[in-house]
Design a protein around this nucleic acid. Sequence first.
DNA 1: CAACCGGTTTTGGTTAACCAATTTTGGTTT
DNA 2: AAACCAAAATTGGTTAACCAAAACCGGTTG
Lengths: 240, 240
Amino acid sequence: METSDLIHSIKSIEFESPTDRIIQQLKQLIVSGQLKPGDRLPAERVLAEKLGVGRSYVREAIRKLEFFGLLKTSPQSGTYVSGYSIKMIEGVLSDIINFNKDDFSALIEARYYMEINAARLAAMRRTDEDLALIRSAVEDYDNKINNKEDAIQEDMFIHLRIANATKNPVFESMLLMLLPDIIRNIVEKKICGDNRGIKAMTGHREILQAIADQDADAAAGAMAAHLDDIFTTTNNHLLP
Amino acid sequence: METSDLIHSIKSIEFESPTDRIIQQLKQLIVSGQLKPGDRLPAERVLAEKLGVGRSYVREAIRKLEFFGLLKTSPQSGTYVSGYSIKMIEGVLSDIINFNKDDFSALIEARYYMEINAARLAAMRRTDEDLALIRSAVEDYDNKINNKEDAIQEDMFIHLRIANATKNPVFESMLLMLLPDIIRNIVEKKICGDNRGIKAMTGHREILQAIADQDADAAAGAMAAHLDDIFTTTNNHLLP
DNA sequence: CAACCGGTTTTGGTTAACCAATTTTGGTTT
DNA sequence: AAACCAAAATTGGTTAACCAAAACCGGTTG
């Protein structure tokens, strides 16, 4: 068994957190009909006792489900199940439980599509200030590369600035959630090749120019090409 | 002052949660250089005492920052700042603090781009089973509409199934995070018009057909048209 | 009979205490 | 002086206890 496979199997064996177990149980309660949309959940205390776990974990699970809009808790009143249909809740819950950001190819793919759109939006909406920030980030990257230094930080910072220029906080935040895991995976897999940095420099320049020109299609195209480069480089490293 | 404006201003006045205050403070620590990338955070207890707040909130803040990859905590050892550059950390932290899903237009826009890509991926990768599930969801929607019933649940379920057919868990989860807030906003703004349902029926059929044909471009186009409909309907309602 | 008032219970919010594992540390031994 | 070992302090993980506010309920009053 190869090392990477070993690591993967270890991760899949890892104990599910108490929080996820609770979510699983809540799902069962809803699917089995004991808890219907609109109902009030049992109090946190009794829930904790019934599930044989501390209240902290129950609260954490509730928070998580609240973030996804499945529960709504009112202070001094109770926590209520959303009004969505059971089928809907069940589907969403299954996805929440399975949510992890360890699937590298899925991560890269999601990033691919989001960044292309981000480049497009940035080109359309960037202010002069945004442009200056992006340009500055690109120059920082170039300097590092020219000095043969590691520049993955600077690389990501460019993309962060572009996301910021979209003026869409939702878009920006979602990209934000992806970036750290992408970095982690890239670092783990040691993708950064030698000529990779030079190639990326050109790509960044093209994206910058398109955004400067406020040419949305060109920006999207340049970003796509840039990410394609990364993708092929990645595959080369994965398939020796 | 109109009601919606009033609500908005109330929301903006709302006290920032202890968690966000802590994140703000941590940001200050890092920006001011008292806490450098790679450093170990003070123990949760001393952090809680220094910030004058319970340890639960410190832990919650740490969890949140961990989710975004900015901190990494090892049991019985400590919590460590990621190795990212200070600029990077600062940028990400600012965005995390400002992250909220209350900007409806940003929400809709993010959904727009993500769903178009989701339709494209679904068309490329859907299995026969996926197709059957999507078709079933579309039929459920049609039935509700034909009976003049509210069908927003069924509408969202269609999109959930399409996201599921992309076979990309990251993509799916991100769309998942958006859907509840979109529903909430739609319900609040009472966007569902009379002929809206009929129009959407056609749109769904076209998307379904494109996915059935495994025609990625057609699926993307149909989804775009479908969402454009929603968007124009929305604007009509917002500008009476 | 209905409306209202006051105390009691229940709620989520918040803090403090406890636990096991790890790390540190100081002294002992080789 | 270096290596080692055990005791003590420190860590995040987990649970229990406390708090104020909201909801509930029974009795009283108009």
